[in-house]
Every structure is written in C-alpha cells, then in structure tokens.
Design a protein around this nucleic acid. Sequence first.
RNA 1: UGGUCUAUGGUGUAACUGGCAACACGUCUGAUUUUGGUUCAGAAGAGUCUAGGUUCGAGCCCUAGUAGACCAACCA
Length: 677
Amino acid sequence: MKEATESLNFIEQIIEEDLAAGFPQEKLRFRFPPEPNGYLHIGHAASICLNFGLGETYNAPVNLRFDDTNPSKEEQEYVDAIKRDVAWMGFQWANVCYASDYFQQLHDWAVTLIKAGKAYVDGQSSEQMAAQKGTPTSPGTDSPHRNQSVEENLDLFARMKAGEFAPGSYVLRAKIDMASTNMHMRDPILYRIIKKSHHRTGSDWCIYPMYDWAHGESDYIEQVSHSLCTLEFKAHRELYDWYLDQIHDPSRLRPKQREFARRNLSYTVMSKRKLLELVQNKYVSGWDDPRMPTISGLRRRGYTPESIRKFSELSGISKRDNVTDVSLLEFCIREDLNKTATRVMAVLDPVKLVLTNYPKAQVEMLDAENNPEDPNSGTHQVPFSRELYIEREDFLESAGKNFFRLTLGAEVRLKSAYIIKAESVVKDAEGNILEIHATCDMDSKSGSGTEASTRKVKGTLHWVSIAHAIKAEVREYDRLFSDEAPDAHEDKNFLEFLNPNSLKVNKEAYLEPFLAHATTADKYQFQRLGYFVLDSDATADRLIFNKTVGLKDSWAKQQAPAAKPTAPAPKPQPNQGKKSALSEVQQISKKLTNLSGDKLEAARQDIIRYAAEISYEEIEPLFGTAAKKVGTRIGVMLVLGVLLKNGQERNAAVEAFIEAGKSDSDEMLKAEAEAIA
RNA sequence: UGGUCUAUGGUGUAACUGGCAACACGUCUGAUUUUGGUUCAGAAGAGUCUAGGUUCGAGCCCUAGUAGACCAACCA
C-alpha cells in the first residue's frame, strides 16, 4: 500500500479504497495506450507518469499498448518514437501490446453480439445515419436495418470482412438505444471498412474496430484493473461498460475506466492535430524542434527525464480544466541542471578586452570549478591570455551604482582568473566600442590564496581567450506562441499567435575550448547565461548549442520590467471584464475585518468612493447577507451611509439592517451602524 | 433546449469521518555568494463561484442558481 503520509490524488485514493475493500494488490495492472499517429508531448507525460508511477508504487505491471485501429492515420515511425520517448523517461513496460493483436478475438466477439441480436449491419450512408442519430437535446430514430434477421446480419458482416464491399458502404452497429441521452449509446459503430495497409497486419483485414469496441476489450484481454484516460472519454464510460457486459466472464477481472483532466501548458498547444499542423506546414523544423512541447523536442532542447517527471509530480492529477504555467516546467529543469550541469564560459555577444599590463606572449592554464554545487565534480583547465572577449552588455563607460559590471575606473573579477580595472576604450568613427583596455592585478589570481585574490569586488564576469576560443552557433528560444492559451480563442486560429521571434540563431558565439568535444548527452551551464546542450544538428567541425533555459535573472527584471517584447502584458482574466462598482465593494469588504490602521481606512475610503456609483436597488438585496460575513455587511453599511447622505429615504428594510448592525457582536460593524443610525 | 463533469491565493494542487484553509511555482524583502545563479531567512497574496439550508462547527453535506468544460467523426 501507498504511504499514508503524502496526500494521494483521487485516482490513488480510488485504488486504495479498492485495496481496502479486498481487491488483491497482485491483480493491479495498468496500461499507457497511445495511438501511434503523432509524437508524445508533455501532456502525455502526465498520463505516462500516472500509469507507470502507479506501477512502481504498487509493483504492478504496466503495458505499453498501441491503440492502432485506424490504418489511415497510424505509422510505424510513431510507434518507434513513442517507445523511444517512454523508455527515455525512465519507465519500463511489462509488455508492448497492440490493439491489432486482438483483431481476431474482437471479430469473434462481434459475431457473438450479432448472434445475440445485439448488433446489426447498416448499409445507409453516413449522412443518413447522422441524421437519424438526433442531437444531444433530441432523441434519434431507428435505422431501417435495425431489426434485420440475425442470418442477414451474419451474412453481411462476413461479406464486409471478405472485402466484397466498398469503404463506407456498410458498418456493423451495436443495437442499444437510439433515444439515450448519451449520444455514444445511440447504436454506435463497432466496425467500418477501410481498405488501407495496416502497419502491423498489412492487408489481412479490411474491417477495423472502432475505438470504443477495441479499447475496453483490449483492457479486458490484458486484465487491466484500472483503465485511466482523460476527461473527454467520460461519456464513453457507459458504452465501455455495456460492451464489457456483453462478453465478460464473471470469473475474470473486469476493468474499470476512470477519467482525469488532461494537462495543459501555457504558451503552447497540446493537441496532436495542431502539433502535426506545425510540423507539416514547416512552422517548426520537426516533431523534435526544441520549441515543441513534445518529449522529443524537450529532450533536444536539453530537458532531462528527471525534470519532466518532477514536473508531472508537482502538477498533480485532478478533474478540472487547467493551464499550468511554463514557469513550473522551467523551475524543474533549472533545479535539476543546477545540481548536475558542468560550468563553462561562453561569450555570446563579444567585445574585445585587452589587458595592457599582461605579457603579450603569455598563456596560463587556469583551474575552473566544474560545479560549485557538487564538491566531487572536480575542475577543468581554461586558457587565459592578454586578449579576451567579454559580453558586450557587461561593459558601460559609466553607470549607476546598481551596475555590478565593468565600468571605466572600476574593478571587477574575471571568473576563475584575475581582478581587472578598465582604463580606456577604443571606438570607431560611429562611436561603437571596438576594444576595452584594462589593467590586470597580477596578484589577484583566483585560487592563489593571496590577499589580493580574495578582495571583494563589485562583480564577476565570464570571458574567453580570443586566441583559444572556439566559434560556435548558439540557438536561443523563446515561447512558440505569444498567447497564454493560443487555442482557447473560438474566434481566432491558434496560428495567429505564433511568435515570430521564437528562434534566435547566433552564429558567432565564442566558447572555451573545453567544449570542443561536447556530446548531446552533456549538460552545460554557460556561466551567468543559462543552461545549454549540444544540438543533434551539430557535427565534428560545426558546434551548435541549444539554450535549454536561462538562469533566473533578477537584473534583467529590474532593468526592464515592462519591456519584454514577447511577453504579452496583462493577461485577460477569464470572465472578469469590467467589474461593477458593487462587486468591487464586495471584493474589498470581504477582507475588511482583517485590516487595521491605515489599510483599513484606505479600504473604507475606496468603498465610499465606489458607493457613489451604486444604486439603492443594487444594495438592498445585500441586506440579507449572512451574519457571519461581517466584512460584507460593513461594506454594505458604508454604502448605505453614502446613499442616505445623498437623500435615500429610510424605509423599513434600511432601518432593520441598521438595527441588526447595531446589535451585532462585531465592534466595527456596530460602530458603522451607529454612525448612520 | 438535453445529458455529464468541474469550481479553493496570479498558476497548479492539498485539506482523512464536517474541526485554525496547507504545499509548490510565481511575486516582493533581506542575508550570504568568485555566476545579478544557488543557498538561507522572511513577507504579501484566499473569507474556498453566488444565495440559502443542516450543524456547536461547512471548502467538505443538502437545495437553488451562476460560470466553464465535454457529448451529435465510418478519429482516438
């Protein structure tokens, strides 16, 4: 059983209840059932972590099952990618299964349904059947084929299977209830004719089972105890159970379906259809484009399995619609990489720095810590010389005292090297800085232990030696969409929110030579800049790095809080347009009793100001506010006071409300009531 | 107009049988720091959608509203 200390999500609670009610733990079995028609994304990670996590918790088998019942959309490429992603996440499946493994069994069960008079072959057009289906608010009507003889149905179904009919000409339908309030129970289709090659069964079949018929029965065949899916399948549950009723052997385990909310991430889309559209129309370079919310995209971007699992754990499982902020994902990857990434130096926007007193021909190999968070991580060597690159934005000729970087006449430390002082600049005709000339305190070498080396200076800069630096391409990413929920606008296509600046390619970045032999498995922190990983496009003579995520940057935040180009400013709060004065008052009033002193007085004045816009008709219903909601009653009292002052007549309701206030136990309410009595 | 589900700080989740609304992210302070990172210390932010009811006591139970999501593919 699960430890009782941590709180359980509602799925885990259900399992604990089942166990407590006598369900044997060794019969627990789960599955992750993707359709191989696209790549896995961060939303799937929630389901993967849920199912495989449950498997780990209860030591239960978890199958990876491909729901491959539609050969017109499914491909082997996706099967391979899905396996790769699940394995990369660090999970082990008990078996790889396919719904197509069960095609024969499914067919045979369908025949028994026909024989039992529970299914029939319908030869109408899809339009006719759709018309008969009715709408959610009005019942459907029976198909004219609904009461065909069992013999005729058997014959027709056999001929469907034999390939005698054209696609679309016949379907096999369950005979349930055309008047059900659940649309899925209005004689749903079990089989349709598709003459396409299937990625596993080739041309063995030309009839394919529908999702509902295949899924629950697959669960049953695999003896899955808890079949977990997303909320949109809630309405399918009745049909899932109906199908199971038809074939269930009481001596065997009967699966149960449960539904949880799918996980959404802000500033991206999470539907395979839309992601496919981005890929096919070349808005991104592929399913694994580092801007994609796919598992493969995140992997290429530099995310780790641990960070994604942590994200799923922190996000939780529930039944309500959600949009998790990407900042949580970014927190998870920073937390992981901070502990594990090797620290190196790279200059992305170089400006030349000349140390005028440093010997011209001299090169020193300095020791640089690999990771200050990990005492066992060791050091690596970095070459230092007279001419260096530093970051252009790390220098200003003069600046305020908040600027902790290099300015003329001031000292900073070069990370792992020396303390320097800027003396002069060389500019071109337009005034652009070409070189910064500085002097180096030769006694201040890092790690030397001298007094000079431990001196406090204003800041520390990263750098590379020009003669030794290797040039590389660095790709920096911003969110793919400029809107928090790009596909949540019914009047706008999600593509309208594509961020045109989501990819920034820098072909002239300079790296310390230690990076020459980086692999895609290595994770680096470019000090003071962020976390970076070698891209899969890189070759031996062409280094390309992806920025996984930047470091938290309180300096940038302080600099330009309002001027983030792609961050759309105030987010429109759902159903919160212009608030009425009344609701403002209600809002403020609620916390009135928590306030005191100036804050209380300010809140009172706010209410009195809003009161001018409120009519008696609006406020009267609030006289009935529950006694315990003292704050609201005080607010109402204040508004009433303003109305009375402006000539509102004192009717019975007003008097009663004031009287009730005067005799209340709350002092503040009593005082306000007496003030206007 | 029908059915089903959901509603807790800005965001995501907790709160056991009804008992002081908690945690994380984010935000803001301060300290430390050879990364304006990390770490450490702290703060602000909710009367649990609304109105009733039951109860000594309600985020939780009941009633009625409101808002949002899902449901009419030969998709899954």
